[in-house]
Design a protein around this nucleic acid. Structure first.
Length: 503
RNA sequence: AGUCUGUUCGUCUAAGCGGCUUAGGACACAGGAUUUUCAUUCCUGCAAUACGGGUUCGAAUCCCGUACAGAUUACCA
């Protein structure tokens, strides 16, 4: 028996930056598709012209790119179901809305936005539906001739779904199991707006059908409008053709309650978007994980384990590993609070895991931005290797390894001043004479220890000063490893400089 | 306010169908060891089945109620 090929879609609106939650939805879609040898489709839901933001679509693509979650079909890479932007599919939807009208499952409504917002102001619980639709300005309340006149005179009109009375609508969610709603408690949602664009409700259903989507993942916030979508499937294409729904748990604020928002990131000082985003209209800037120095591997790993778990103690997964073990059955039902500390931990783990060569590639741009010129790639990789265990975020490499490439401008000599002595000066002078280019870190260490002994100074007394000379501060890898990598000439020059400063 | 969904350490979570758990792991936090620096690493500690009723020989696991939390109630998605 031939089962239908799995097809899933990630369907963002190009209204701004891509939020953690959106990114995770994309990831789960992608993983599900890969696990089941299916297709992963990117569909741009740009039916709200007032909220459309220039550049947002390209930005979303960049985020997916960064994470290595590439769609099989997208606006830029159309498959057999083009176009992939809903604004370009505008003409498709009207036909279905009119079909619903012809079947008595939807109706024209002429109430203006002002009238409705007035009604909502008067009654906060106002809903456009079974209880009051006969009193409003629509085809259910007006006579056919009145309706025809309004239509003929180009009065602004929308098409609303007619929710049935006394009916329970239920469906099986892949994550939550059976969920049911009383139809008469759901509004008669607008399906086609006055500008001729469909609302989300009509567009998802029509496009999921036309694009042969088999599994539809979206955030839990969509659960309350599910009955509208179920009904549209029943009316238009039959529930048998409906994709398997899966409502993903939300990502919550770390403190307090509620969905994680862009504001929380600003408030608590961590990124919420995948990549940096500047709103072209307001110039408002929101930080992204990428630029803050997170590796895509870590970002994805962290996201995957927010609401999903294989059922073992394993926590570190590559994208490939996730592709083979991901399953909807292991999704959680409840929301998860976001924890930036855990995110940092994932990054640290991935830094330790990646070979220096890969890290060097990822870290290089930060050095360039900081104005540090890397001339020798081999040295750079070695430096990265030497310091990687002390870095959590990528910019940490600048503080941890920057001194390899630019001599410290203000070495902290105050820390060694008190115990500085002429004997120590002699030790360092002797050492500078003794060392040469063929010496490894161990040779350098032996050499200094021998000289210290000759001057009756404890070798330990020279370590801190040497560190300050080479690094400028009290941190970093073993001093002799540093000296070896810096090279003899540079090591000597830094020693001499500090000796002069201490005179 | 209505509707829907959820509820295991501070946080993320494990314990597929009730017994194999003194409820396990990770993050965080606190001690300690190692590192003649810092970080890493390694030990140790810490801390939870929301509450109340059932069902059962036995419940974190099943049922009911309560509480709490979240989502949603736009010609936004």
């Amino acid at each position: 028996m031939l089962s239908k090929k799995v097809r899933v879609r990630f369907a963002p609106s190009p209204t701004g930056g891509l939020h953690l939650g959106g990114m995770r939805t994309a990831l789960f879609n992608y993983l599900f598709a890969k696990k089941n040898n299916g297709d992963f489709i990117l569909r741009v839901e740009d039916t709200d012209q007032t909220r459309y933001v220039d550049g947002a679509e390209a930005y979303i693509m960049q985020c997916l790119n960064w994470c290595g979650i590439l769609p099989d079909e997208s606006p830029e890479k159309p498959g057999n179901y083009a176009p992939y932007r809903q604004s370009e599919r505008k003409e498709i939807y009207r036909k279905y809305a009119e079909q619903l009208i012809a079947n008595g499952q939807a109706y024209y409504a002429f109430d203006t936005a002002d009238e409705l917002s007035e009604a909502r102001k008067k009654d906060p619980n106002f809903r456009y539906g079974i209880g009051n639709r006969a009193q409003l300005r629509n085809a259910l309340a007006l006579s056919p001739t009145e309706v025809q006149t309004l239509l003929n005179t180009n009065t602004p009109v929308v098409i609303r779904i007619k929710m049935p009375e006394n009916e329970t609508i239920s469906f099986t969610d892949a994550i939550r199991g059976e969920v049911s709603f009383a139809a008469n408690l759901t509004d008669d949602k607008v399906l086609l707006k006055a500008d001729g664009m469909p609302t989300y409700h009509l567009a998802v259903v029509v496009d999921d059908f036309l694009m042969q989507i088999t599994h539809a993942f979206r955030g839990e916030e969509w659960l309350p409008s599910a009955p509208v979508h179920i009904l549209l499937w029943r009316y238009l294409f039959g529930e048998a053709a409906m994709p398997q729904w899966a409502h993903l748990p939300l990502i919550l604020k770390p403190d307090g309650n509620g969905k994680l928002s862009k504001r929380d990131g600003e408030r608590l000082g961590f990124p919420v978007f995948a990549m940096n985003w500047t709103d072209p209209r307001t110039q408002e800037f929101t930080a992204g994980f990428k630029e803050r120095g997170y590796l895509p591997q870590a970002f994805i790993n962290m996201l995957a384990l927010l609401g999903w778990n294989e059922g073992t103690d394993k926590e570190i997964y590559s994208l490939e590993a996730l592709e083979s073990v991901f399953s909807l059955e292991r999704m959680h039902k409840h929301g998860a609070k976001f924890d930036i500390e855990k995110a940092k931990w994932f990054n640290q783990e991935w830094i330790k895991l990646l070979p220096a060569k890969d890290l060097a590639h990822a870290v290089k741009p930060y050095f360039v931005d900081a104005g540090i010129d890397i001339k020798n790639e081999d040295n750079f990789e070695e430096a990265i290797q030497l310091v990687k265990e002390r870095c959590t975020l990528l910019p940490d490499f600048i503080t941890q390894a920057g001194f390899f490439f630019t001599a410290p401008t203000a070495p902290k000599i105050d820390d060694i001043k008190a115990k500085w002595s002429n004997d120590k000066v002699k030790c360092f002078n002797d050492w500078c004479m003794a060392i040469h280019g063929n010496m490894l870190a161990a040779d350098l260490e032996l050499s200094l220890k021998t000289i210290a002994e000759a001057h009756q100074i404890k070798a330990g007394e020279l370590m801190q000063p040497l560190r300050i000379m080479l690094v400028g501060d009290k941190f970093g890898p073993g001093v002799f490893d540093i000296a070896a990598l810096l090279g003899i000439a540079e090591t000597k020059s830094r020693i001499e400089k500090v000796i002069r400063l201490l005179q």
